[in-house]
Amino acid sequence: MISLRNLVLALIIIGAINWGLVGFFRYDLISSILGQNLELVTRTIFALVGLCGLYAITFFRPHRQ
């Protein structure tokens, strides 16, 4: 479970950095790394980052003992 959380956190950080670059400089790092030919892969990465963000909401719920 800890490794899943670490993966989710890493994808959220990558997504946040990418959105910061888009917001400040209009530069999409993920799309530039993967290129135009891999648009489906790029969209899949964006979808995974979004799902990780939704999963991360559960990080802040109080745990029942």
Rank of each mutant, 00 (worst) to 15 (best):
I57M: 09
L29R: 00
R61E: 12
G23K: 02
F59T: 05
A56H: 14
I17P: 07
S3K: 05
L34Y: 03
E39T: 03
S31Q: 06
C52S: 15
I30E: 04
I17E: 07
I13F: 08
M1E: 08
I13E: 14
Q65E: 15
I33F: 02
T42R: 04
I30R: 03
A16R: 10
T44S: 15
L7Y: 14
V49T: 11
C52A: 15
L7N: 14
R61F: 12
L34Q: 00
R26T: 03
R64T: 07
H63R: 15
S31Y: 04
R5N: 15
Q36S: 06
M1C: 07
L40P: 08
N18S: 02
L51C: 04
I12Q: 12
N6F: 13
A16C: 05
C52D: 14
L54G: 13
T58R: 12
L40H: 10
F46K: 14
S32L: 01
P62D: 04
F59K: 11
I30T: 00
L29M: 05
N18Q: 06
F24W: 07
H63A: 14
V41G: 01
N6R: 14
F25L: 12
A16I: 06
F46W: 12
C52I: 11
Q36T: 02
W19I: 00
I45S: 13
V49Q: 15
C52L: 14
L11C: 10
I57G: 04
R26W: 06
G15N: 03
G20Q: 04
I33W: 04
E39N: 05
L7P: 06
Q36N: 03
Y27C: 02
L29V: 04
S32E: 06
G15Y: 01
L34F: 08
L21T: 06
Y27K: 03
Y27I: 04
L29H: 01
G20W: 05
L54I: 12
I2C: 08
Y27M: 01
G50E: 09
F60E: 05
N6V: 11
L48A: 14
P62Y: 07
V22S: 00
Q65G: 14
A56G: 11
G15K: 05
V41K: 04
I57S: 04
T58K: 09
L51Q: 02
L7E: 15
A47K: 10
A56W: 09
I30N: 01
G35E: 00
L54V: 09
R64W: 06
L9Y: 10
T44D: 15
I13P: 02
A56Q: 11
F25K: 10
V49F: 08
